[in-house]
Simulated scan of single mutants.
Amino acid sequence: MPPADRCPVFPADLSPAADHDGDFAELLSTTAVTPARLADGTPVHLALSHAAVRRVLTDPRFSRAQASRPGAPSVVPFHAQTGLLHTMDPPEHSALRTRIARAFTPRTVERLRPWIEGLVEDMLDGMAAAGPPADVVAHLTVPLPVKVLFQLLGVPYEDRDDFREWAEKVLPTGAVGVAEAEAAAGRITGYLRRLVRARRDRPGDDLISTLWEPGADGSLLGEEDILANLLPLLVAGHDTTHNQLSNSLVALFREPAQWHLLLRRPDLVPNAVDELLRHQMLSRIGMLMRVTTAEVDVAGVTLPAGAAVNALNCVANRDPAAFPDADRLDVTRPDAARHLAFGAGPHYCPGAQLARLELGIALSALLRRFPGLRPAAPLSELRWKDGIMRGPWELPVTW
Rank of each mutant, 00 (worst) to 15 (best):
residue 1 M to A: 15
residue 3 P to I: 01
residue 4 A to H: 12
residue 7 C to N: 08
residue 15 S to M: 14
residue 15 S to W: 09
residue 17 A to D: 07
residue 18 A to F: 11
residue 19 D to F: 13
residue 21 D to F: 03
residue 24 F to A: 00
residue 26 E to A: 15
residue 26 E to K: 15
residue 26 E to F: 01
residue 28 L to D: 01
residue 33 V to M: 09
residue 34 T to H: 10
residue 36 A to M: 08
residue 39 A to M: 02
residue 40 D to C: 12
residue 47 A to Q: 07
residue 50 H to M: 12
residue 57 L to V: 13
residue 59 D to Y: 06
residue 59 D to V: 13
residue 60 P to I: 00
residue 63 S to T: 06
residue 68 S to N: 05
residue 70 P to D: 09
residue 71 G to T: 02
residue 74 S to Y: 07
residue 81 Q to H: 15
residue 81 Q to W: 11
residue 86 H to G: 03
residue 88 M to G: 04
residue 98 T to P: 05
residue 99 R to E: 10
residue 99 R to W: 05
residue 100 I to N: 10
residue 102 R to L: 13
residue 104 F to L: 11
residue 105 T to S: 15
residue 106 P to Y: 03
residue 116 I to R: 05
residue 117 E to Q: 14
residue 117 E to Y: 09
residue 118 G to P: 08
residue 128 A to Q: 08
residue 129 A to W: 02
residue 129 A to V: 03
residue 130 A to G: 04
residue 131 G to F: 02
residue 133 P to D: 02
residue 139 H to S: 07
residue 140 L to I: 10
residue 140 L to G: 01
residue 143 P to I: 01
residue 144 L to Y: 03
residue 146 V to Y: 03
residue 148 V to M: 04
residue 150 F to R: 04
residue 151 Q to S: 12
residue 152 L to M: 03
residue 155 V to R: 06
residue 156 P to K: 01
residue 158 E to H: 05
residue 158 E to Q: 06
residue 159 D to C: 05
residue 162 D to L: 09
residue 162 D to K: 07
residue 165 E to M: 04
residue 167 A to S: 12
residue 173 T to Y: 14
residue 177 G to T: 12
residue 181 A to R: 12
residue 184 A to C: 04
residue 184 A to V: 13
residue 188 I to K: 11
residue 190 G to Y: 04
residue 194 R to N: 03
residue 194 R to Q: 05
residue 207 L to Y: 12
residue 208 I to D: 00
residue 209 S to G: 03
residue 209 S to H: 05
residue 210 T to V: 15
residue 212 W to I: 01
residue 216 A to K: 05
residue 223 E to G: 04
residue 226 I to M: 00
residue 226 I to Y: 03
residue 227 L to V: 03
residue 231 L to I: 10
residue 232 P to A: 01
residue 237 G to I: 00
residue 240 T to F: 09
residue 240 T to D: 04
residue 241 T to E: 02
residue 245 L to V: 08
residue 248 S to H: 12
residue 250 V to C: 07
residue 252 L to P: 03
residue 254 R to C: 10
residue 255 E to W: 15
residue 260 H to N: 15
residue 264 R to W: 02
residue 265 R to F: 00
residue 265 R to D: 07
residue 265 R to W: 04
residue 265 R to H: 15
residue 267 D to Y: 11
residue 271 N to G: 15
residue 283 S to M: 00
residue 285 I to R: 11
residue 285 I to V: 10
residue 287 M to N: 11
residue 290 R to S: 02
residue 293 T to G: 12
residue 293 T to C: 03
residue 294 A to H: 12
residue 298 V to N: 06
residue 301 V to N: 04
residue 305 A to Y: 11
residue 311 A to Y: 06
residue 315 V to G: 03
residue 316 A to S: 09
residue 318 R to G: 00
residue 320 P to H: 01
residue 329 L to N: 06
residue 329 L to R: 13
residue 333 R to W: 01
residue 336 A to P: 12
residue 337 A to Q: 14
residue 340 L to F: 05
residue 344 A to R: 10
residue 344 A to W: 06
residue 346 P to C: 04
residue 348 Y to H: 14
residue 349 C to H: 06
residue 353 Q to H: 15
residue 355 A to M: 07
residue 359 L to E: 13
residue 359 L to K: 09
residue 361 I to L: 14
residue 364 S to L: 12
residue 365 A to K: 15
residue 366 L to Y: 09
residue 369 R to E: 11
residue 371 P to F: 14
residue 374 R to H: 08
residue 380 S to C: 04
residue 382 L to H: 01
residue 384 W to F: 02
residue 386 D to R: 07
residue 392 P to V: 08
residue 393 W to Y: 13
residue 397 V to C: 12
